[in-house]
């Protein structure tokens, strides 16, 4: 069983970040609150399994992620990623990138947030795990039960969609 005092400290420290992650994954405030509570409840029950030499953030984020996927499944918003339809490994070698002016505009106008929220779940989840939680491709692959290259493809798709949305928005705006 967990050390209550230590866990309470971690809980207070990480609650906002876990909430932000759940909010990003589930897109609804109330759902995110519930998911955050459930994440910490699950974490508390399995706190002994946490290896303290690894970042707590990655551990709790993985729990949050799994719970959010469960929620998305229940809501019918999550479908297993069919990598045969996604496979486009060649593109990994020839990626484009957003130009600096588009990025600056996106950061300043919250366009990026909106664009991320509008990504399909299968792209949004790995994207958030990579850039918000800072998980490695390998860690994301384990969570999504894919391999590293598949993660790369999903992130590539996510970025392509983001680039398209951001470029259109900044040019249109």
């Amino acid at each position: 069983m967990a050390d209550s005092a230590a866990f309470e400290i971690l809980y207070k420290e990480y609650y906002p970040r876990v909430f932000a992650l759940c909010r990003r994954l589930l897109l609804r405030h109330e759902c995110a609150e519930d998911a955050t509570q459930e994440t910490f409840t699950r974490a508390y029950k399995t706190f002994r399994q946490y290896q303290s030499d690894k970042p707590f953030w990655h551990w709790i984020a993985a729990i949050a992620h799994n719970h959010c996927i469960d929620r998305l499944r229940l809501d019918g918003r999550w479908q297993e990623v069919d990598m045969s339809a996604e496979a486009d490994f060649d593109q990994l070698a020839s990626a484009d990138a957003l130009t600096e002016d588009v990025l600056i505009a996106a950061e300043n106008q919250s366009l990026l947030h909106n664009a991320i929220d509008r990504l399909p779940e299968k792209y949004r989840l790995p994207f958030v795990m990579a850039y918000q939680v800072q998980l490695s491709y390998d860690d994301i692959a384990v969570l999504l039960e894919l391999n590293r290259s598949h993660v790369g493809v999903l992130l590539l798709r996510a970025k392509q969609q983001l680039r398209a949305k951001l470029t259109a928005a900044t040019k249109g705006g």
């Binding site: 932000a20 992650l21 990003r24 950061e107 990026l112 958030v128 850039y131 918000q132 800072q134």
Partner: peptide, 13 residues
Amino acid sequence: SFSKVLALSADAQ
């Protein structure tokens, strides 16, 4: 840039 914006969003909560 993505990490920065998303990290800011987490801290902003």
